[in-house]
C-alpha cells in the first residue's frame, strides 16, 4: 500500500494576522504579494495534520510506503520535516509559484503520483491557510478518478476500506469508502507530533527527489492556467466602536443591556 500526503508552504498565518491587526499588512509593487519578508514560511497547518493522520494509521498497524509531495519554489525545508516524521519518500515538484494555478498544481501532483507507482490514499489538508481555496484535493480526485472525503477528523484503514469521521455542521458523520481515495484533514484531528531529535539529525541528510513539469510530461492543456491572480489588497475595516463606560462591572453590564434594549436588538 502507498499513501501520498500533499503539503504546501505558506506564510505563518498568525504572523500575517498580527501584521493585519496592527494595520501594517502591505502589498508590494507588483500589486499581488505581501511585502513582509520577515513573516516566517512554514508548512500549512492542516497539511501537517494530514501527515499526522498518516502516522496514526501506521501507529495502528497499517503497512504502507509514505510519500510526501510538495509543489513550489523550494519545499526542501518542509520535506526534511516530513522525512524526520517518517516519510519514506519526499518529492519536490519544482515550479515557479507565480505561474501556478490550482489546476496546474493538481495536474503536477496527479502526474507525479501516477509516475511513481500510484496511491491508495492521498491525504491533504482541508485548505491552505494563505489562499483558503481548498480545491486541489478535489481536482486530484477527479484527475485520478478517486473518491473524495472532505473535512476528516479521524481516519482508519481496514484492508482497503477507509473508515472516516467527518466534521459537519450537524455534528460528526461516519463514512466508509474503498481505496483509492483522497481525504482532506481538518484541525479537529488534533495536534501533530514533533519529530525526535535523532530523526531530525538523520533527516538533514535526506535529499528530496526533484521533478520538474517537463519530467511529468504534461500536455499544453494541463499547463494552461485557468485562474490568474491580478491583484491582492487589504480590505478596510470600518472601526466605529462605541466604548461603553461605567465604574463597575455591574454598571458596564447595565449600560450594555440598556443599549441593546434601546436598539430593540434584544
Amino acid at each position: 500500500m502507498r499513501i501520498v500526503v500533499c503539503v504546501k508552504e505558506v506564510l505563518d498565518p498568525d504572523a500575517v494576522n498580527n501584521y493585519a491587526v496592527a494595520g501594517r499588512l502591505e502589498i508590494g509593487d507588483d500589486g499581488k504579494t505581501l511585502t513582509q519578508t520577515a513573516i516566517p514560511r512554514l508548512m500549512n497547518g492542516f497539511d501537517e495534520q494530514a501527515i499526522e493522520a498518516a502516522l496514526r494509521l501506521r501507529d495502528a498497524g497499517a503497512d504502507f510506503t509514505l510519500a510526501v509531495v510538495s509543489a513550489g519554489e523550494s519545499p526542501e525545508k518542509l520535506l526534511k520535516h516530513a522525512a524526520a516524521l517518517g516519510a519514506d519518500e519526499v518529492v519536490a515538484i519544482q515550479v515557479d509559484p507565480g505561474s501556478l494555478d490550482y489546476h496546474l498544481v493538481a495536474a503536477l501532483i496527479s502526474a507525479q503520483i501516477e509516475a511513481s507507482g500510484g496511491a491508495d490514499v492521498v491525504l491533504c489538508g482541508r485548505q491552505a491557510s494563505d489562499d483558503d481555496q481548498g480545491v486541489v484535493p478535489a481536482l486530484i480526485a477527479e484527475r485520478l478518478d478517486m473518491s473524495l472525503v472532505t473535512i476528516a477528523k479521524a481516519v482508519e484503514l481496514e484492508g482497503t476500506t477507509l473508515r472516516i469521521t467527518r466534521v459537519t455542521p450537524d455534528g460528526d458523520e461516519r463514512v466508509e469508502t474503498a481505496c483509492p481515495a483522497v481525504v482532506t484533514i481538518t484541525n479537529e484531528l488534533g495536534d501533530p507530533r514533533y519529530p525526535t531529535a535523532a530523526a531530525k539529525v538523520k533527516a538533514r541528510r535526506v535529499k528530496p527527489t526533484t521533478v520538474t513539469p517537463d519530467d511529468l510530461k504534461l500536455d499544453a492543456d494541463d499547463l494552461a492556467p485557468r485562474v490568474s491572480v491580478t491583484r491582492q489588497f487589504v480590505p478596510e475595516v470600518q472601526g466605529n466602536c462605541e466604548m461603553l463606560q461605567g465604574d463597575s462591572p455591574a454598571a458596564l453590564a447595565d449600560a450594555l443591556i440598556e443599549k441593546l434594549r434601546a436598539d430593540s436588538i434584544i
Partner: peptide
C-alpha cells in the same frame, strides 16, 4: 488569509 486580504 481568512479575510486579512482579498485576492482578485
Amino acid at each position: 488569509y481568512g479575510g486579512d486580504t482579498r485576492v482578485v
